[in-house]
């Protein structure tokens, strides 16, 4: 699926010629979804931007304005720390998902045989059951007196490990929640890959390892990029994993934004945080699109 995500984005840069006869029908078809997105997405994002220049009124309600106070407040090192932490968590999540997800996609795509579909279904099923309930199950398993620590103690392997309420737990939660979105696009690009390439690579390179890095990895770069996008974006904006598995110092941007809207009662500051998050993503997308375009050219 995700392979088409960047296709669509990259498309903007490309001109595609079509016979003009059917244009009117297509324009008619474009109108309703475009109007919907204009009303409910573009204009609501506009409100966020406008409100980020506002302040909290005397009754505790947000008021529009034209001040940069919220952005000045964000220059406090505390917020910078949260932004850096979120970026580190999201990058770690993406990298771990890639390293863990690739072998799985590889095995299923190239060695799944007739069980390929069943294996993919087996992989997807847990992701269709509640994420929150699965997270909760993990937190009971990994609790200090949970099943896993009991096993460790009973077998004498360890006197108990503190898994929960650590940065590692937050990242693990994020990986667990979205790794399927890494596996699927890589699986898809491995499926599409011409296996003759590997055969040819074997003749050219000596070790299977060299073949893998010289042939297979480049051939599936589009799938990896798709996976990176689908894992990185949700991870960067997440607040659930840090809320349920995090400790005292694992606050992410998502938590900060959520707090401004539901606890701190400072919607303008929350809006400013949201705008900064959007800007950070814009920068990420520019680099991302450059990377996908390079892949497309190589294709």
């Amino acid at each position: 699926m995700s392979l088409q995500v960047e296709d669509a984005l990259v498309d903007l840069a490309k001109e595609k010629r079509r016979s003009p006869t059917r244009t009117r029908l297509w324009n008619v078809l474009l109108a309703p979804p475009a109007l919907w997105m204009l009303v409910f997405f573009i204009s609501s994002v506009t409100i966020v931007v406008l409100l980020s220049f506002g302040h909290v009124g005397d009754t505790g309600k947000p008021v529009f304005g034209f001040s940069l106070d919220n952005y000045k407040a964000l220059s406090d090192p505390v917020y910078l720390k949260v932004f850096i932490r979120s970026a580190v968590f999201a990058i770690a999540t993406t990298a771990i998902s890639l390293v863990l997800g690739y072998p799985v996609a590889y095995t299923i795509a190239l060695h799944g045989g007739k069980y390929k579909n069943a294996l993919i279904a087996f992989l997807v099923i847990p992701f269709f059951a509640s994420y929150l309930i699965r997270m909760y199950a993990w937190s009971t398993l990994l609790a200090d007196e949970g099943l896993i620590n009991q096993l460790l103690r009973d077998t004498g392997l360890s006197s108990g490990i503190r898994f929960l309420n650590t940065p590692g737990a937050v990242i693990a939660g994020l990986v667990y929640g979205s790794i399927v979105f890494m596996v699927l696009p890589i699986y898809a690009s491995l499926e599409r890959m011409d296996t003759a390439l590997i055969e040819a690579g074997k003749d050219l390179y000596h070790s299977p390892l060299q073949t893998f890095f010289a042939v297979t990895v480049p051939a599936t770069r589009a799938g990896m990029l798709g996976g990176v996008l689908l894992v990185f974006l949700p991870a960067l904006g997440d607040f659930v994993s840090a809320q349920l598995l995090g400790g005292p110092s694992t606050y992410m941007i998502g938590n900060l934004i959520q707090q401004q809207f539901f606890e701190g009662q400072n919607q303008p500051l929350g809006s400013a945080l949201t705008v900064v998050l959007m800007l950070a993503l814009l920068i990420f997308m520019v680099f991302y699109l450059r990377a996908t375009q390079r892949v497309n050219r190589e294709k």
Binding site: L38, V39, F40, S43, T46, I47, L50, L51, G54, G57, D58, T59, G60, K61, P62, V63, F64
Partner: peptide, 24 residues
């Protein structure tokens, strides 16, 4: 109201937010 709200984000100021002081 939702539909007419398109592009008229400024009009919102009168609608839900800063009108807050009079509402309660």
């Amino acid at each position: 109201r939702g539909s007419f709200g398109v592009g008229a984000a400024a009009a919102l100021a009168a609608c839900g937010f800063s009108g807050g002081s009079s509402t309660p």
